[in-house]
Amino acid sequence: MKRLITLTVNDKKYEVAVEPNMTLVDLLRYELGLTGTKKGCEVGDCGSCTVIMDGNPVNSCLVLAVQANGRDILTIEGLETDEGLHPVQQAFVDKGAIQCGFCTSGMILSAKNLLDRNAKPDEAEVRMAISGNLCRCTGYQKIVEAIKSASGWREGSGKSHE
Protein backbone atom coordinates (compact mmCIF):
# COMPACT_ATOMS: atom_id res chain seq x y z
CA MET A 1 0.00 0.00 0.00
CA LYS A 2 1.26 3.46 -0.86
CA ARG A 3 2.11 5.85 1.92
CA LEU A 4 1.94 9.59 1.95
CA ILE A 5 5.24 11.19 2.91
CA THR A 6 6.45 14.78 3.06
CA LEU A 7 10.03 15.74 2.58
CA THR A 8 12.03 18.82 1.74
CA VAL A 9 14.22 18.58 -1.32
CA ASN A 10 16.44 21.55 -2.13
CA ASP A 11 14.35 23.79 0.13
CA LYS A 12 11.11 22.82 -1.58
CA LYS A 13 8.44 20.82 0.24
CA TYR A 14 7.00 17.78 -1.51
CA GLU A 15 4.10 15.56 -0.56
CA VAL A 16 4.17 12.26 -2.42
CA ALA A 17 2.59 8.84 -2.19
CA VAL A 18 5.22 6.12 -2.42
CA GLU A 19 5.36 2.34 -2.25
CA PRO A 20 7.40 1.18 0.77
CA ASN A 21 9.83 -0.63 -1.53
CA MET A 22 10.78 2.51 -3.44
CA THR A 23 14.27 3.83 -2.74
CA LEU A 24 15.08 7.49 -2.23
CA VAL A 25 17.11 7.63 -5.44
CA ASP A 26 14.12 6.33 -7.43
CA LEU A 27 11.81 8.82 -5.74
CA LEU A 28 14.14 11.67 -6.69
CA ARG A 29 14.70 10.53 -10.26
CA TYR A 30 11.38 9.06 -11.31
CA GLU A 31 8.79 10.84 -9.17
CA LEU A 32 10.37 14.26 -8.69
CA GLY A 33 12.26 14.37 -11.98
CA LEU A 34 15.55 15.24 -10.30
CA THR A 35 17.82 13.17 -12.51
CA GLY A 36 21.03 14.89 -11.40
CA THR A 37 21.34 12.16 -8.79
CA LYS A 38 22.75 9.14 -10.63
CA LYS A 39 22.27 5.45 -10.15
CA GLY A 40 25.29 3.23 -10.72
CA CYS A 41 25.74 0.07 -8.68
CA GLU A 42 22.57 0.41 -6.56
CA VAL A 43 24.23 -1.42 -3.66
CA GLY A 44 26.26 1.26 -1.87
CA ASP A 45 29.58 0.76 -3.62
CA CYS A 46 29.90 3.65 -6.07
CA GLY A 47 28.49 6.83 -4.49
CA SER A 48 26.95 8.15 -7.71
CA CYS A 49 23.61 8.35 -5.86
CA THR A 50 25.00 10.55 -3.05
CA VAL A 51 22.59 13.07 -1.56
CA ILE A 52 22.86 15.05 1.66
CA MET A 53 20.18 14.00 4.15
CA ASP A 54 19.76 16.09 7.31
CA GLY A 55 23.30 17.38 6.80
CA ASN A 56 25.01 14.04 6.13
CA PRO A 57 25.95 12.62 2.72
CA VAL A 58 24.46 9.15 2.21
CA ASN A 59 23.93 6.60 -0.57
CA SER A 60 20.32 7.27 -1.63
CA CYS A 61 20.11 3.80 -3.22
CA LEU A 62 20.21 2.31 0.30
CA VAL A 63 17.59 4.61 1.81
CA LEU A 64 13.90 3.84 1.45
CA ALA A 65 11.75 6.76 0.34
CA VAL A 66 9.56 6.16 3.40
CA GLN A 67 12.63 6.54 5.61
CA ALA A 68 13.14 10.01 4.10
CA ASN A 69 9.75 11.09 5.42
CA GLY A 70 10.17 14.42 7.22
CA ARG A 71 13.82 14.73 6.26
CA ASP A 72 15.71 17.48 4.54
CA ILE A 73 17.41 16.43 1.31
CA LEU A 74 19.95 18.32 -0.76
CA THR A 75 20.71 17.09 -4.27
CA ILE A 76 23.07 18.45 -6.90
CA GLU A 77 20.19 20.50 -8.35
CA GLY A 78 20.06 22.47 -5.08
CA LEU A 79 23.57 23.87 -5.27
CA GLU A 80 23.30 26.47 -8.01
CA THR A 81 21.84 29.82 -7.00
CA ASP A 82 20.94 33.03 -8.83
CA GLU A 83 24.55 34.02 -8.42
CA GLY A 84 25.65 31.03 -10.43
CA LEU A 85 27.26 27.71 -9.77
CA HIS A 86 28.32 26.73 -6.29
CA PRO A 87 32.08 27.37 -5.85
CA VAL A 88 32.73 23.62 -5.73
CA GLN A 89 30.82 23.15 -9.00
CA GLN A 90 32.70 26.03 -10.58
CA ALA A 91 36.03 24.59 -9.44
CA PHE A 92 35.17 21.22 -11.04
CA VAL A 93 34.49 23.01 -14.33
CA ASP A 94 37.58 25.20 -14.12
CA LYS A 95 39.95 22.40 -13.19
CA GLY A 96 38.72 19.88 -15.75
CA ALA A 97 37.53 17.53 -13.00
CA ILE A 98 34.60 16.31 -15.08
CA GLN A 99 34.89 13.78 -17.89
CA CYS A 100 31.83 11.60 -18.44
CA GLY A 101 30.15 13.28 -15.47
CA PHE A 102 28.55 10.22 -13.98
CA CYS A 103 30.34 10.52 -10.64
CA THR A 104 30.25 14.30 -10.57
CA SER A 105 27.03 14.96 -8.63
CA GLY A 106 28.09 12.65 -5.84
CA MET A 107 31.67 13.91 -5.81
CA ILE A 108 30.55 17.52 -5.55
CA LEU A 109 28.12 16.80 -2.72
CA SER A 110 30.74 14.86 -0.75
CA ALA A 111 33.22 17.68 -1.36
CA LYS A 112 30.74 20.38 -0.36
CA ASN A 113 29.98 18.51 2.84
CA LEU A 114 33.68 18.30 3.63
CA LEU A 115 34.25 22.01 3.05
CA ASP A 116 31.21 22.93 5.14
CA ARG A 117 32.83 21.15 8.08
CA ASN A 118 36.47 21.79 7.38
CA ALA A 119 37.22 24.91 5.35
CA LYS A 120 40.89 24.08 4.82
CA PRO A 121 41.26 20.32 4.44
CA ASP A 122 44.61 18.78 3.57
CA GLU A 123 44.98 16.39 0.67
CA ALA A 124 44.50 13.29 2.83
CA GLU A 125 41.25 14.70 4.21
CA VAL A 126 40.03 15.51 0.71
CA ARG A 127 40.79 11.99 -0.50
CA MET A 128 39.09 10.46 2.53
CA ALA A 129 35.98 12.60 2.05
CA ILE A 130 35.48 11.35 -1.51
CA SER A 131 36.53 7.79 -0.78
CA GLY A 132 32.95 6.54 -1.11
CA ASN A 133 32.64 8.07 -4.57
CA LEU A 134 34.18 6.13 -7.42
CA CYS A 135 35.34 7.75 -10.65
CA ARG A 136 36.25 5.60 -13.64
CA CYS A 137 37.49 8.48 -15.81
CA THR A 138 39.63 11.11 -14.17
CA GLY A 139 42.04 9.19 -11.98
CA TYR A 140 40.89 11.50 -9.16
CA GLN A 141 43.82 13.91 -9.44
CA LYS A 142 41.86 16.77 -11.04
CA ILE A 143 38.96 16.17 -8.68
CA VAL A 144 41.27 16.53 -5.71
CA GLU A 145 42.80 19.67 -7.23
CA ALA A 146 39.35 21.15 -7.82
CA ILE A 147 38.29 20.53 -4.24
CA LYS A 148 41.49 22.03 -2.91
CA SER A 149 41.12 25.09 -5.10
CA ALA A 150 37.53 25.53 -3.91
CA SER A 151 38.57 25.23 -0.31
CA GLY A 152 39.23 28.91 0.13
CA TRP A 153 35.80 29.96 -1.09
CA ARG A 154 34.32 30.96 2.23
CA GLU A 155 36.92 33.66 2.71
CA GLY A 156 36.54 34.63 -0.95
CA SER A 157 34.87 37.74 -2.36
CA GLY A 158 31.11 37.78 -1.77
CA LYS A 159 30.88 34.35 -3.30
CA SER A 160 29.34 32.69 -0.26
CA HIS A 161 26.31 30.65 -1.14
CA GLU A 162 24.94 30.03 2.31
Binding site: G44, P57, M128, S131, G132
Partner: peptide
Protein backbone atom coordinates in the same frame (compact mmCIF):
# COMPACT_ATOMS: atom_id res chain seq x y z
CA UNK B 1 33.98 0.83 8.33
CA UNK B 2 32.90 1.11 4.68
CA UNK B 3 33.02 4.63 3.30
CA UNK B 4 32.07 8.05 4.68
CA UNK B 5 28.66 7.64 3.01
CA UNK B 6 28.07 4.17 4.45
CA UNK B 7 29.21 5.31 7.91
CA UNK B 8 26.45 7.93 7.96
CA UNK B 9 23.87 5.14 7.65
Amino acid sequence: LGTPLIRNL
